[in-house]
């Protein structure tokens, strides 16, 4: 039963992140075609990203709907989802060790702090890379936490 629940949360999260990344690329495509839905998609992403064009990658002649760092985080999340079945499987719920989270977080924290303090100006490729690294560890928390919550809710119903 637990295996099914973890698998269900995993598949829902996988579908969600694929749709999310698809929308990030779809926004500039629709905008380039003059479709008003493109503007709406940019609006949808505006609460979660500053969307500064100079800090974003461009495609179809327009910047993507989120900045390079956010794109990295979401792409890393998708990559982490790919590794989840290999590293964790669906048999048990286990969170990563704290030192793993800290190791994956250090580059993005250092890069962001360096930029904010004016110590250096990162390129979009570096922002993307640090975002991917951090994003890759996130599914191991997200899937585990939601599966644990779902399992508890199921027990309460029973």
């Amino acid at each position: 039963m637990m295996k099914n629940r973890i698998l269900l949360v995993y598949l829902a999260s996988l579908g969600g992140i694929l749709a999310w990344l698809g929308a990030i690329v779809l926004a500039p495509y629709l905008r380039s075609r003059g479709n008003p839905l493109g503007k709406f998609l940019y609006f949808c992403f505006s609460p979660v990203c500053h969307q500064i064009p100079g800090r974003s990658f461009s495609t179809f002649g327009y910047p993507m709907a989120v900045c390079a760092r956010c794109l990295g985080i979401y792409s890393g999340f998708l990559a982490g989802m790919g590794f989840y079945p290999l590293l964790r499987g669906f048999a048990e719920l286990r969170l990563p060790k704290m030192k793993i989270f800290l190791a994956f977080s250090l580059p993005i924290v250092a890069d962001t702090a360096g930029n904010l303090l004016g110590l250096w100006a990162s390129t979009n490729v570096l922002r993307l890379a640090t975002g991917i690294l951090w994003g890759a560890v996130l599914p191991f928390y997200f899937v585990t936490g939601l599966a644990e919550l779902a399992s508890r809710a199921k027990k309460r119903i029973e």
């Binding site: 905008r31 008003p36 503007k39 709406f40 940019y42 609006f43 505006s46 064009p53 327009y62």
Partner: peptide
């Protein structure tokens, strides 16, 4: 070469 359309890109809202 920044496209002029970029300026109204986020005009929704």
């Amino acid at each position: 070469e920044t496209p002029a359309e970029w300026k109204d890109m986020f005009s929704f809202g």
